[in-house]
């Protein structure tokens, strides 16, 4: 599958919510889209294009905005594809993919607690690696290492 194949299929579905499909080495391409098109894109990727394996979602803090990069795999094409979306730093919310791929559940929980991406309609958005009540987002650039943090860890199950 080539970037052209992807954009030919996705352009009618997403319209102007699709920004571009760029080539990316050793993958089917990198789809850049606007967050309003998230659910339609996810559905098209899984049902029409055969990307049934949700590998992971990586959150990246670019200080002025944030980026979510979804990694999907297709057993038919034997290829990965990357989906990339820019989210404003003040309101980093996007529709959850866990209704489409159940495996997105934990990956989104991790992205939420680490990079502060908010996933709408996530079934179970609570802390995963960090203790409950942890208010920091460690993978934001504003979170500096080597500085003491004030933290009161609550017991999880009392």
């Amino acid at each position: 599958m080539q970037p052209d194949d992807l954009s030919r299929h996705l352009a009618p579905i997403l319209g102007d919510r699709l920004i571009a499909v760029e080539p990316f080495p050793e993958t089917a391409g990198r789809v850049r889209f606007r967050r309003e098109g998230a659910l339609d894109l996810f559905r098209a990727m899984r049902d029409d294009l055969g990307f049934r394996h949700f590998s992971t979602v990586a959150g990246i803090d670019w200080v002025d905005h944030r980026e979510a990069v979804y990694v999907l795999w297709s057993d038919d094409a034997k290829q990965y594809v990357l989906l990339s979306v820019d989210l404003p730093a003040g309101d980093p919310r996007i529709e959850s993919a866990s209704g489409i791929w159940p495996s997105a559940n934990w990956h989104e929980r991790e992205a939420w607690e680490m990079v502060d991406l908010n996933f709408d309609h996530h079934p179970d958005l609570r802390h995963l690696l960090m203790p409950d009540g942890y208010t920091f987002h460690p993978l934001l650039r504003s979170f500096k290492l080597h500085e003491p943090e004030e933290l009161e860890v609550k017991a999880r199950h009392v």
């Binding site: 590998s55 992971t56 990586a58 959150g59 990246i60 803090d61 990069v69 990694v71 495996s103 934990w106």
Partner: peptide, 16 residues
């Protein structure tokens, strides 16, 4: 590196 992200297979295997 500006950012590294790793996907662990066991992470997903446990989540199921």
């Amino acid at each position: 590196p500006y950012r590294v992200k790793f996907r662990s297979p066991v992470f997903s295997n446990i989540s199921a």
